[in-house]
Design a protein around this nucleic acid. Structure first.
Lengths: 216, 216
DNA sequence: GTCTATAAAGGGATAGAC
DNA sequence: GTCTATCCCTTTATAGAC
């Protein structure tokens, strides 16, 4: 590992520690620089903005998620179980990061921001994030168009879960865990229902909708 | 109208004009004060923070939405048409405010922030916002528990639509309009399907889920 | 109660020296 | 790559005018 890489890691590590303890707003770049033992300018050399630190966090989480989810997928057989595992492993990963995670959503509504959650600059992270749900869908028998769209829909659902999670004040965020289990069953039921004969028009309708969302 | 109220309105008006043109980040409180012809302190006298200006905007929009939606509801008969009207009147209202609207979402992930979109301080606005969908549901025949929960679910859906709208770069945001029409049909279809006999367990499942979300 | 004028604390971001 | 100095902004505060 090159020295510059080490410095970068150090800055990110102390930043995340601060974010977890004091929250995003409660942490200053000056704090981060001081904790890392570098000058303010050095911190900005590695991370062009405070938001960039949050994105680096989310990138890191994403890599770990794909790994953990794959391990969990290997233990189960059904789509329902894989979806459940995908959601729960993610929650396990961010369990102690609720304050931090909130910062990821600060840019959802700002397309101008280069680091917007839905913007072009974050496309790679988003792609990796969606990949987990692609693997969860796996070889599930689905109409061909749904096969490409279902992962995006499930990823969007997972964003909603994270938002709920951030606001969930129940002990250990058990409510979010319950929500996940309920949602997984609902998705399973819905897929079963939609597979019923005679529902081609409804399926087509949903396919068109998802395609519209995905185009973007 | 008292003079103080006039000053407040003036400040809000010029602030919104700036936000629309330069975006939230691109506008400074100094700009706002100068445009309004008041001292910086006066701007803070009426609006304790820059965020407060955004919330005042959303409050204003909400009042207008209830009004416009009601007028539209009077023209139609079915639930589908009312839901469609609720969504489209909202989009009409914010049509030129995409930059501004994004700022409303800046706080979705921050429960600490007093002006968080889901926080206690914004409960009145949220309530008014949900009320529109209560009226859209109206006297629609529904299981009693669904009657209370459907409006919240539809309101959440509407937030998703707004998010899509903010990022929609199509001319006149026609894609969002299409999305709304598709969603309305999907919701209608789903409600029809769920009314089918033999689906009590599914209905109970969904009811439990929505209740979980609403508790919060 | 409504506002002006001014200052200053504190923080994000940047320029330019080394 | 790293640092210092600096800019500009939000927000708070204060003293006083009307």
């Amino acid at each position: 590992m090159r020295k510059s890489e080490k410095t970068r890691e150090k800055i990110l590590d102390v930043a995340l520690a601060r974010f977890r303890k004091e929250g995003f707003e409660g942490t200053t770049m000056r704090d981060v620089a001081k904790d890392a033992g570098v000058a303010l300018g050095a911190a900005y050399y590695y991370f062009p903005s405070k938001d960039a630190l949050v994105m680096a966090y989310y990138e890191r989480i994403q890599d770990e998620h794909l790994e953990k989810a794959r391990a969990a997928f290997a233990q189960v057989k059904s789509f329902r179980d894989r979806l459940r595992a995908a959601m729960h492993t993610k929650l396990d990963l961010v369990a102690r990061d609720r304050k931090l995670l909130g910062a990821v959503f600060r840019t959802v509504g700002d397309p101008e921001n280069p680091l917007s959650t839905f913007g072009p600059a974050t496309a790679p992270i988003r792609k990796a994030s969606i990949a987990v749900f692609e693997e969860a869908v796996g070889a599930e028998p689905l109409p061909p168009d749904m096969r490409k769209l279902a992962p995006v829909a499930l990823w969007a659902l997972h964003l909603g879960v994270l938002l709920y999670f951030i606001h969930d004040r129940s002990r250990g965020q058990v409510r979010t865990r319950k929500l996940v289990d309920g949602l997984v069953d609902m998705v399973g039921d819905a897929m079963g229902l939609l597979a019923l004969p005679g529902l081609e028009p409804v399926r087509a309708q949903i396919g068109a909708l998802l395609a519209l969302v995905k185009e973007e």
